[in-house]
Write a protein that binds this DNA or RNA. Structure first.
Length: 894
RNA sequence: GGGCGGAUAGCUCAGUUGGGAGAGCAUCGGCCUUACAAGCCGAGGGUCACAGGUUCAAGCCCUGUUCCGCCUACCA
């Protein structure tokens, strides 16, 4: 027997590298495009090509990997589609920053050259995150990796755009959009992050032309007044009911602007006077449309005041604000300034304050698409789990607004629209058109804008499968089985995939959406670079191993709750991984030379050669198998992890292995040894299979060392699915084992509490009125003797109370541990008193129930019966302890 | 403004039809027992945020309150 079969401590690094290489070389992650097996598919939420693996990715992909590996073990044909997204703005930012270091801008290069530079950048760094996912153990079908800018996916994007345009679901128009003056592009509403901030509310007097009074308006952005084209009041506002003036003079600009009446104006806010800037505020824009007001753009796309801003031209928008305020003060038109809490929109990419800006952009008409997406969830075609997110989904979908999809950047899918230089007609087409559809002119200019990255991500579940081609892959794997994601991209991505999937595939993109938590730091704060509380998953992996890290994520991934990550927690689960390693090491010392065949499972409850621990652990394994598959199928990942933890450590290691040690050392004969070895082999084998989805590396390593196994553990048969499998749940074995465990624990408790050295062998005797219990302890006396460290263990039917003994009550039996010469009566009485007090407490709550006639009359019989039994048991135990306490006290006095 | 979630042991959190308050870590005591000191054995520790209500019975269901977190919104 060699003990160097496995190293003493688990060293993850080498193991992980080896198996990662093996899995890839053997193509174990690849899906079959056509198969008789059940299909299971997941599309990865594509990380940004610029991204590096963070905790969110780690959790997200660990959960997906668990599902994929689990389904493979269950025999499914699994496709986990990997890929990255081109992240238009983010990627272009990165490359432009590089250019800036050389003192260049994108305009120096021109469109073509910039795009080329981005592709080069991608070649160089784009696979970073993919490699990091591989280190995490992600079992994606890597050969099928997709990128949103790939030829095929670009075709899909183009086709979707053209069809939606032809159906009237895409249009171009002049509207107020969110403009980032730093990124110099429009953004969708979702891409604006709102931050509460302390601002100021300025009350400004707009005088009447006759200089007799005027209307006071309130604003947080005084610089926009330069573009005001009206003042609005509510038609129902009595303060303005008798107003005869129909215009005011716009201060600083000395422009006469009309007073309009519009229901939009909130009479309770400020003076009830609202300045109207149609070019720089979405509501004002609407008012402008209703009252036919001109829109004057005073803030340029670069955030600098335009020539329309008069003497303020050329100022930065924030400097202009200060100047405008100063100028108003000078003219005594600034009536009041008050602090004002409001939320400011910022660019989600660069955090620059967003400028609402009038601009010609492309939009998707979302409502008709959203209606069907709502219906799909209502009807259960797609389930959102946990269901609490359904409300959020409905709420957003029902209030959906048109989606601005054009971006004024170069990196992305260029919009396939051409404007005629002669008649201004727009031609939208799959292929580059030669002539204008309306006038036939050849003077066509292509739209320079590109599409929002999320437009292409919305097609991900079918574009990655080959659409618009009618591929086998698409037929086999669409709709996908489940989408795993965090809630922060529920609208960005999930909702839009639902809309596009249903529209173009006539079927939902996924049957389930599992929404998991966000990973936070130890204190529950969101991890962010600026806070400096980021934990790098790769550092954690280096330090503790991938398996420990994955197990930690899984154990904390309870539904509807954030994961608080700290290295200390990972350390705890590294201990678990190491425990498993050592249990395997110990087991292999005994079974490595045995002959076992995974296909032939002759073990059954009825096998007489099996010992009590054998039957017990098989029973527990059977229960574990059921609970693990139930948990994983209902996305209760943390339950699967904790059940596995409990089983491995506290059932398999603490009790089973300890109990069968003498058997393995041959103390009970050859037959018993062979039987236990067979069980040990089976339990270890099935346990690593059950653990494999969560901790793939160590389980593959152990699998490879187990006799009778072939190939990768990924090709193993899930314990519940083995042919000819017989149920192993054995209530007798469980109750007998419980009795044995109780007895041992009782004796150990005495040893611990009385401060008796573990090395000192003790003598114990047991008494009971219950012959069945006595039979059980008699039969398994050797286990008790061994694990409680006794040199003598007697069944005592005399009923006598020995003198110098400590006592315990276990499963209704009285155990005496002889402590001749060692006993401390004082200590023993304290110990017994403590126990009695504890029982008394329990008895008060129980007797309250039993004294309650309503309880006896109305509670189900089963419940009453349980309480009665418990009561009787406790009373009996209390009496036994009490009479012994009296005995000890008496002895003490003697 | 609307919505959602959370409050359970010192810490982090489980707790699925209402009937035993649990785990991991930390703490305390004892152990180099030939798989594992990253270990083994034993122990202590909770008014389940607060106030009501429904029920024979509430951590769980209902109402209200406080505190914390998040999402969402065109509140000038």
């Amino acid at each position: 027997m060699s003990s160097d079969l496995l190293d003493k401590g688990y060293e993850p690094k080498a193991v992980e590298e080896r198996w990662n290489r093996f899995w890839l070389e053997e193509n174990l992650f690849s899906a079959d495009a056509v198969s008789d097996q059940k299909s299971f598919s997941i599309v990865i939420p594509p990380p940004n090509v610029t991204g590096v693996l963070h905790m969110g990715h780690a959790l997200n992909n660990t959960l997906q990997d668990i599902l994929c590996r689990y389904r493979r073990l269950r025999g499914d044909n699994v496709l986990w589609m990997p890929g990255t997204d081109h992240a238009g703005i983010a990627t272009q930012n990165v490359v432009e920053k590089e250019l800036a270091r050389e003192g260049k801008t994108r305009h120096d290069l021109g469109r073509e050259a910039l795009i080329e530079a981005v592709w080069e950048w991608r070649e160089k760094y784009g696979s970073a995150i993919i490699n990091q996912l591989k280190r995490l153990g992600a079992s994606c079908d890597w050969d099928r990796e997709r990128f949103t800018m790939d030829e095929g996916l670009s075709q899909a994007v183009r086709k979707v755009f053209v069809e939606l345009y032809e159906e009237g679901l895409i249009y171009k128009g002049n509207y107020i959009i969110n403009w980032c003056p730093r990124c110099l592009t429009a953004l969708a509403d979702l891409e604006v992050e709102h931050e509460e901030s302390e601002g100021r509310l300025y009350h400004i007097l707009y005088p009447f032309p006759n200089q007799k009074g005027g209307i006071v308006v309130a604003t947080t952005r005084p610089e926009t007044m330069l573009g005001d084209t009206a003042v609005a009041v509510n038609p129902d506002d009595e303060r303005y009911a008798d107003l005869t003036e129909d215009s005011v003079i716009l201060p600083l600009m000395n422009r006469k602007i009309p007073v309009v009446r519009d229901k939009y104006v909130d009479m309770s806010f400020g003076t009830g006077g609202l300045k109207v800037t149609p070019a720089h505020d979405p509501n004002d824009f609407e008012i402008g449309v209703r009252h036919n007001l001109p829109a004057i753009k005073v803030i340029g796309d670069d955030g600098i005041m335009t020539s329309e801003a008069g003497r303020f031209q050329g100022l930065d928008r924030f400097k202009c604000r200060a100047q405008v305020v100063k100028a108003l003060e000078k003219e005594n038109l600034l009536k009041q300034v008050e602090p004002h809490q409001h939320s400011v929109g910022c660019c989600y990419r660069c955090n620059t304050v967003i400028e609402p800006n009038l601009s010609k952009q492309w939009f998707v008409k979302a409502k008709p698409l959203a209606d069907k997406a709502i219906e799909a969830v209502e009807s259960g075609k797609t389930r959102i789990i946990p269901t609490t997110w359904e409300n959020t989904y409905y709420d957003w979908m029902r209030n959906i607004k048109d989606w601005c999809i054009s971006r004024q950047i170069w990196w992305g899918h260029q919009i396939p629209a051409w404007t005629c230089g002669d008649c201004e007609e727009i031609t939208v087409s799959m292929d580059t058109p030669e002539t204008c559809v309306k006038c036939g002119s050849k003077n066509l200019v292509r739209e320079t804008d590109v599409l929002d990255t999320w437009f292409s991500s919305a097609l991900w579940p079918f574009s990655t499968l080959g659409w618009p081609e009618k591929t086998e892959l698409l037929k086999t794997f669409y709709p996908t089985s489940v989408l795993v994601t965090a809630f922060d991209i529920l609208f960005f991505w999930v909702a839009r995939m639902m809309m596009m999937g249903i529209h173009f595939m006539k079927d939902v993109p996924f049957k389930d959406v599992y929404i998991h938590a966000i990973v936070r730091d130890e204190e529950g704060k969101k991890m962010s670079k600026s806070t400096g509380n980021v934990i790098d998953p790769l550092v954690v992996i280096d330090q503790y191993g991938t398996d420990a890290f994955r197990f930690t994520l899984t154990a904390f991934a309870a539904q509807g709750r954030d994961v608080r990550m700290s290295e200390k927690r990972v350390e705890g689960y590294r201990h678990f991984v190491n425990k498993l390693w050592n249990a395997a090491r110990f087991s292999l010392m005994h079974i490595q030379d045995g002959e076992f065949d995974a296909a032939e499972d002759s073990i059954s409850r009825e096998n007489e050669r099996l010992s009590l621990p054998d039957r017990w652990i098989l029973s527990k394994l059977d229960r574990l198998t059921t609970s693990v598959s139930d948990s994983l199928e209902t996305y209760h990942f943390n339950e699967a992890a904790s059940n596995l933890y409990q089983f491995v450590w506290h059932e398999f290691c603490d009790w089973y292995l300890e109990a069968i040690k003498p058997v393995l050392y041959g103390k009970h004969g050859e037959e018993a040894m062979q039987a236990s070895k067979h069980v040990l082999w089976k339990v270890l084998k099935d346990t690593v299979i059950l653990l494999h989805p969560i901790i793939p590396f160590i389980t593959e390593e152990i699998w490879s060392k187990l006799p009778g196994t072939k190939g990768s553990i990924m090709q193993a048969v899930f314990p519940g699915d083995q042919p000819g499998r017989r149920p192993m749940i054995d209530p007798d074995a469980e109750s007998h084992m419980a009795l044995v465990v109780d007895t041992i624990t009782g004796i150990r408790n005495i040893r611990g509490e009385m401060g008796i050295s573990p090395s000192m062998a003790l003598s114990a005797r047991i008494q009971s009125d219950n012959p069945e219990s006595l039979n059980v302890v008699r039969e398994y006396a050797s286990i008790i003797k061994n694990l409680a460290r006794l040199n003598e263990f007697m069944i005592d039917e005399s009923g006598e109370k020995p003198k110098s003994a400590a006592m315990a009550v276990a499963s209704g039996m009285v155990i005496y541990v002889d402590l001749e010469g060692v006993i401390d009566f004082e200590k023993e009485s304290l110990r017994l008193e403590k126990e009695i007090t504890k029982i008394a407490k329990e008895l008060t709550t129980i007797s309250k129930k039993l004294n309650n006639e309503d309880f006896l009359a109305k509670a189900p019989d089963e419940v009453v019966q349980n309480v009665r039994e418990k009561n009787a048991g406790l009373i009996e135990k209390q009496q036994k302890l009490q009479s012994n306490l009296e005995r000890v006290r008496k002895l003490h006095e003697d």
